[in-house]
């Protein structure tokens, strides 16, 4: 979806955010599923910063230049066009050295799960409003 035409960049950002949120749900549910697997390291996913950065870059008109802000970033991890934002995946290793080296906290994952869900629904609602506005202006009757 390009920014021209009737769909503006807000729609684009919301679209991408929902996409990333549903991907994040997959990561969280993998952590919950592996909450008792010995040696499992919690998988984390961050995309908020990268998305914010790409929004501000697109807003100032500096285009699709990609840059990395962290030595472990993949080339598509941050900056660049909104559609290119993939999020940053990393595993947090268990540091304390006791037990079975599994560092999943079920409470943490549950909190993340509900936060993710609320933000997803907020995105859905905003996208719905956006489309309703479009619908309103393209109606012929007054």
């Amino acid at each position: 979806m390009t920014a021209n035409g009737i769909f503006d960049s807000t729609t684009q950002v919301l679209d991408k955010a929902l996409d990333l949120r549903s991907r994040k749900l997959e990561v969280i549910s993998a952590n919950i599923a592996n909450a008792e697997t010995p040696g499992y390291a919690r998988l984390r996913m961050d995309f908020e910063e990268a998305l914010k950065e790409s929004v501000s870059q697109t807003g100032s008109g500096s285009g699709t230049g990609q840059r990395t802000t962290h030595p472990r970033h993949m080339t598509t991890g941050g900056g660049g066009a909104i559609q290119e934002v993939r999020g940053h995946f990393y595993r947090q290793m268990d540091q304390n050295g006791i037990g079975d080296n599994n560092n999943v906290s079920l409470e943490r994952e549950m909190v993340d799960l509900s936060e993710n869900q609320i933000r997803y629904e907020a995105g859905i609602r905003m996208l719905g409003k956006k489309f309703n506005m479009l619908k309103l202006v393209i109606q012929e009757r007054v």
């Binding site: 949120r21 549903s22 749900l25 969280i28 549910s29 919950i32 599923a33 909450a35 079920l106 994952e109 549950m110 799960l113 509900s114 993710n116 869900q117 997803y120 629904e121």
Partner: peptide, 13 residues
């Protein structure tokens, strides 16, 4: 139960 919750979250989304 935790896994049922994550499946329900996916369904709801």
């Amino acid at each position: 139960e935790a896994n049922v919750t994550s499946i329900k979250a996916a369904q709801r989304m």
